[in-house]
Structures are given as structure tokens and as C-alpha cells.
Amino acid sequence: MALPWDEVKSLMTEEFFPRNEVKKLQAEFWDLAQDSGESLAYTTRFHELSLLVSHMVTPLSRCIEKYIGGLPRQIQDTVLGRNPDAIRLSATLTDNHVKAGTLT
């Protein structure tokens, strides 16, 4: 039986991804923020959750806003002007602030 991919995806989601678990992941993603200087851990978890609850990061502009919104305030201001390089720039800035002692 041939089914379109969207239908297969929908059926599998209903079977193996209960709604209460989706709600938990959405709540975690909504509250996701970078703690201190852990930019790699934040970026990794952001990517994991964005795959699981992809509707929360579609379109790309929403994804970028969510990523930047979870960064520390010291980093957000600088990153906002350079969206295409947000992940790389935020990691560099976080490392710099940790080394300078302005972010723990």
C-alpha cells in the first residue's frame, strides 16, 4: 500500500509520539535557555528539540529568533545584528565572556 510521506509521518507520530510527550517537549523547548557558558550544550539541545517539535521553529526566521532568545542577554545584543552566523558568533562571544569573567 503506497501512502504519501506526510500521511505515513502523521500515522507514525500518532502511534509512537503521544500528545502528552509532545506537550512536555514543547514546554521544555519554550523554556530552553543557555546556562552560563554552556553554548555547546544549549546548541545541541536546541537542535534535538527543533527536530522533535519542528512546528515551533518553522519558518527559519522563527528558528533564529528562538535560538537567539535563549542566549544570555550579554550575547543576544551582539548576535541580533548578525543572524546568519548566530550559532557560531554566540559560541565565540560566550567563550569570550566566560574568559573575561562576565559570564559564569
Rank of each mutant, 00 (worst) to 15 (best):
D31W: 05
L32D: 05
A33R: 10
Q34V: 08
Q34Y: 02
Q34A: 04
D35P: 02
D35Q: 08
D35Y: 05
D35N: 10
S36V: 04
G37T: 05
S39I: 13
A41F: 02
A41Q: 10
Y42E: 07
Y42K: 08
T44I: 10
R45D: 06
F46L: 13
F46Y: 07
H47T: 10
H47D: 07
S50A: 11
S50G: 06
L51S: 13
L52N: 13
L52M: 14
L52P: 03
V53N: 08
S54D: 12
S54A: 14
S54Q: 14
S54H: 14
H55P: 07
H55T: 11
H55W: 14
M56L: 15
M56H: 04
P59K: 13
L60C: 09
S61H: 15
S61C: 09
R62P: 01
C63F: 11
C63N: 12
E65V: 10
Y67L: 02
I68G: 03
G69L: 10
G69Q: 06
G69W: 09
G69P: 02
G69R: 11
L71N: 06
P72N: 11
R73A: 13
R73G: 00
R73F: 08
R73Q: 14
Q74A: 15
I75P: 03
I75W: 02
Q76I: 13
Q76K: 15
D77R: 15
D77A: 12
T78R: 15
V79W: 02
L80E: 08
G81Y: 05
G81N: 08
G81P: 00
R82G: 00
D85C: 06
A86S: 03
I87A: 02
R88Y: 00
L89I: 04
L89V: 00
L89H: 01
L89S: 03
S90E: 03
A91L: 03
A91N: 06
T92K: 14
D95P: 00
D95V: 03
D95G: 09
D95E: 13
N96W: 02
N96K: 14
H97P: 02
H97S: 12
V98T: 01
K99Y: 00
K99V: 01
A100F: 01
A100N: 12
A100Y: 00
A100E: 13
G101Y: 03
G101C: 01
T102F: 01
T102N: 06
L103W: 01
